[in-house]
Structure formats: structure tokens, C-alpha cells
């Protein structure tokens, strides 16, 4: 194909990688490195400007903002990780089954996917929360339900394509059982594009978690979460705009980091897509 695809700018990819890795690290070791208890209320030190004790200042209850941001990384990225794991398992099994078996089962599963694809995340989340109440678990379930079908479709498409390869036929003729063929010859071709897609989606899903929490539907105060923090700070926006800026910046940087990383991964792992983009 014509090698005119957008070249991978290694500098910005490295920056994105460091950014993403930094957030993951914060989510992992957050509770060990927070300078203050993110839940500790200190009404004597409300609305403090950034200083040496509170590097990013304090909020309307005197809680340390930096500590809350670090703790929030775990809430947001942790729930995104759970969402991704569930989505990947669902997508791989449904898409893999539909692609490998084909026929009626394929038709039924894909119509099911179509149904789920028609429901926007926020609408589904509102429905779930209306029916089952607010909370992070419901938000996670809502995001999983509205995303798995994309993955199932992509997996099915890749499986259908890989199934026509001669080496899959050769394995069939050699008597390999379908599950072994899937694991040996189909899965290795499915994983790289899926990994790229999943990385791209981390930012997207983090936005959903933060967005729903901002609306008061997901994570509930006082649990530190970026969307919740923005919602808390909304009331003081005109007098203390920095309170909105910090969690907003955290969300923006996290989404940016994972998006760029996903983009770079896709360029590397999905040659067909890169070639297509060049046209």
C-alpha cells in the first residue's frame, strides 16, 4: 500500500505514554503517596490557595485537593479497568462465538448487538440509575452494556476474516479442534487491534465515569472522584475557578494521554487501518 500514513511522532507518543503510565501509577500507589487524608475536613483552612502544605490548595471543606485528585485516579481508572475487562470478555466470547460458529447463532447474536448499539451510554445509564439507584456499580454496568457490542462486532469481523486464511483451513484439515484453532490461529490476529481499540477507549470511558459522576449519578460524595470534584466546585466557580480547573485538567490529561497512546498503538498494531488512512 501507499506509505503515506501519518507517521508516528515518537516524541508525542512517548509523552502520551508517560502521561498514561503516570496516571496508572497514581491509581496503583495513590493511597501510599497522598500528602493528606483526601476525606479529612478542615473548616479552618477552607479555600486555601496553593501553598507549601497544600500544593494545589484546599476545597470548600478544607480538604486537600492534590490528595483528592490522586485518590480520584484510582476511583476513575479502577472502574474503567473493570469496565474494560468485562467488555473484553463479553466482546471476545460473543464475537468469537458468532464468528467461529456462524449461521443462525451468528445472526441471532449480531441482532442482539444491533439492539445494544442503538442505546446511547447516557440514556442507558439514566435508565439503569432510575431503575436501580445511583452508584458506581450501576454506572459500570451501564457503560459495559452500551460498549460490549462494539467489541463483539469488531471481534466477529476479525474472526470472519482470519477464518478464511489458508492456515486456518490447514489446521482444520489437520484435525485441530475448533477451540484450539481459535486460540492458536485466530486469537493472535484479534488481540492487537483489540488492544489498540481498548486503549483508545480508556479515555472515552473515563469521561463517561466522570461525566455521570458529575451529574450526581455515579460516584457519590464524599468519595474522591474527578467528576464529583468538579460538581462540588461548580458552586464556587466565579470566586474560586481553580477548584474546577484542577480536576478538569486531570480528566483532560488522562483522556489525552490514553487517546494518544491508543492512536499510536493502532498505528503500530493495525497495519490495514494505517494503510487505509493513507488513501
Amino acid at each position: 500500500m501507499i506509505p503515506t500514513a501519518r507517521p508516528v511522532r515518537s516524541g508525542s507518543v512517548a509523552a502520551a505514554g508517560i502521561l498514561a503510565a503516570g496516571f496508572v501509577l497514581l491509581a496503583l500507589v495513590g493511597p501510599l503517596v497522598v500528602p493528606h487524608d483526601p476525606l479529612a475536613v478542615d473548616l479552618a483552612h477552607r479555600f486555601e490557595a496553593p501553598n507549601l502544605v497544600h500544593l494545589l490548595g484546599t476545597d470548600h471543606l478544607g480538604r486537600d485537593i492534590l490528595s483528592r485528585l490522586i485518590a480520584g485516579a484510582r476511583t476513575t481508572l479502577g472502574s474503567v479497568l473493570v469496565v474494560l475487562a468485562l467488555v473484553l470478555v463479553l466482546g471476545l466470547s460473543v464475537g468469537g462465538l458468532a464468528g467461529m460458529v456462524g449461521g443462525r447463532l451468528d445472526a441471532v447474536l449480531m441482532r442482539l448487538c444491533d439492539v445494544f448499539l442503538t442505546i446511547p451510554t447516557f440514556v442507558l445509564a439514566l435508565f439503569m440509575i432510575g431503575a436501580l439507584g445511583t452508584g458506581l456499580v450501576n454506572v459500570v454496568v451501564a457503560i459495559v452494556l452500551s460498549h460490549w457490542a462494539w467489541y463483539a462486532r469488531i471481534v466477529r469481523g476479525l474472526v470472519l476474516e482470519l477464518k478464511t486464511r489458508d492456515y486456518v483451513l490447514a489446521a482444520r484439515i489437520a484435525g485441530a479442534p475448533p477451540l484450539a484453532i481459535f486460540a492458536e490461529h485466530v486469537l493472535p490476529g484479534v488481540v492487537p487491534p483489540l488492544a489498540a481499540l481498548a486503549t483508545l477507549d480508556i479515555g472515552h470511558m473515563a469521561l463517561h465515569v466522570a461525566g455521570l459522576s458529575f451529574l450526581g449519578l455515579g460516584v457519590q460524595p464524599p468519595t474522591p472522584e474527578w467528576g464529583v470534584m468538579i460538581n462540588d466546585a461548580r458552586a464556587f466557580f466565579w470566586t474560586r475557578p481553580l477548584l474546577v480547573v484542577w480536576p478538569g485538567l486531570a480528566i483532560a490529561l488522562a483522556v489525552l494521554g490514553f487517546n494518544r497512546l491508543g492512536d499510536a498503538l493502532r498505528d503500530r498494531l493495525d497495519p490495514a487501518l494505517v494503510a487505509g488512512r493513507g488513501l
Binding site: Y167, L169, I173, A174, G175, H185
Partner: peptide, 18 residues
Amino acid sequence: LRGRVVASVLQAPRTAFN
């Protein structure tokens, strides 16, 4: 029969291997 009684050699060796 596949692989146990009948083995096969395909036409294009280049594509018959993963």
C-alpha cells in the same frame, strides 16, 4: 479422519502456515 487417517499437503505453502 482429518489428521488421524488422512493428512494433507496444501497448494500454497506460503499461506498454509500461520
